[in-house]
């Protein structure tokens, strides 16, 4: 299952959705809104996406993971909109026959998501300023 949503992510339901009697392993990854980046303090993040392309790219990533590992089921949910400190921004669950495959597939999926899926976060810093996060861009 691949989903972009403005709602709170039900990661229990997501995890259940990938469980299978064929799986010996289920890995769940949660990305959460962190307070400190260096010495700067985050109070909230705003997420935006090019939804049509993001969904297509997430589907491609699932296909890539299935080509590399014996994946039984994958679920990826990314939240959009305004998230407060500690909120879950992304949840990714993957099931495979054995644990190493599940860890590797899960790491591959989240690492690739952060590079190729057109979703952006905007920092709301504690000093009241905001700033889009665009890795590698200094303006």
């Amino acid at each position: 299952m691949i989903l972009l949503t403005h709602d709170i992510i039900d990661y229990n339901a997501l995890t259940e959705s990938v469980r299978s009697n064929a799986a010996g392993a289920v890995v769940l990854f949660l990305g959460t809104v962190r307070e400190l980046t260096g010495d700067r303090r985050t109070v909230a993040l705003d997420y935006d996406a090019y939804s049509q392309m993001a969904e297509a790219k997430l589907a491609e990533l699932e296909a890539e993971a299935r080509a590399k590992w014996p994946v039984i089921q994958v679920g990826i949910v990314h939240r959009l909109g305004h998230l407060e400190l500690g909120d879950i921004s992304v949840a990714l669950a993957v099931s495979t026959p054995h644990r190493q495959q599940a860890f590797e597939a899960g790491q591959y999926l989240i690492d690739r998501l952060k590079v190729v899926v057109p979703i952006w976060k905007k920092e709301n810093w504690s000093d009241g300023t905001t700033e889009w996060v665009h890795p590698g861009v200094t303006t």
Partner: peptide
Amino acid sequence: YANDQTPLRVGADVACFPPVSGG
């Protein structure tokens, strides 16, 4: 994703954006 040599057609869905930061 396209590169600078990718040809464009009228009516194509084109988007421009800075590096992504999801997750």
